[in-house]
Design a protein around this nucleic acid. Structure first.
Length: 154
DNA sequence: CGAATTTGACCCGCGC
DNA sequence: GCGCGGGTCAAATTCG
């Protein structure tokens, strides 16, 4: 497995333009911030995991052929499942940092295999160890949005 | 040697 | 109550 650099917008401004609008663009990122108000499962499961952070969900759509996008954090794959909605299996990743229960799942589009939908759940509580300038601004925006939307002490 | 990855099994929630 | 779908964990294996 080799690292693959994703084409990200040089502009620090994250525009919420639909990725389908400009498929010709070499790089296009779609960031969606949704408020996870509805609990998907009971406390039993959440409690079992140990207080997971599912307050906000961030959908990150990028054009890449590699799933293991290095966004500056260490991700440990903990599962892979094939969903009926997609012909491609969905990969589940978790932050390897102790105490950082950030989870992310990646799913490929059945129509456009070049498009990978990365969904981030939770916020990181540790500095970036990698030099991902491209992703740095994105991640920073993510964290900023998280803190701005809801300041939840971990 | 340690950490990360893989695949399968298990579990839970929901629908019928 | 059973089945389907989705999600997570765990043990084994491989890579660095």
């Amino acid at each position: 497995m080799e690292k693959h650099e994703v084409l990200l917008p040089s502009s620090s401004s994250l525009d919420a333009s639909p990725f389908e609008a400009n498929p010709s663009s070499g790089s296009n990122v779609h960031v969606q911030s949704e408020e996870f108000l509805k609990s998907k499962r009971k406390e039993t499961l959440s409690e079992r995991r140990g207080k997971e952070i599912m307050k906000h969900k961030y959908v990150f759509q990028t054009r890449s052929q590699i799933d293991k996008l290095d966004d500056g954090f260490r991700w440990r794959k903990y599962g892979e499942k094939l969903v009926k909605n997609s012909k491609f299996p969905r990969s589940y990743y978790k932050c390897s940092y102790r105490g950082c229960n950030v989870r992310k799942h990646i799913q490929r589009h059945s129509k456009d295999e070049q498009i990978v939908e990365t969904t981030y759940e939770g916020m990181h509580v540790h500095p970036v160890e990698k030099s991902a300038e491209s992703f740095d601004q994105i991640l920073r925006s993510f964290i900023t949005s998280n803190q701005l939307n809801n300041v939840t002490p971990i």
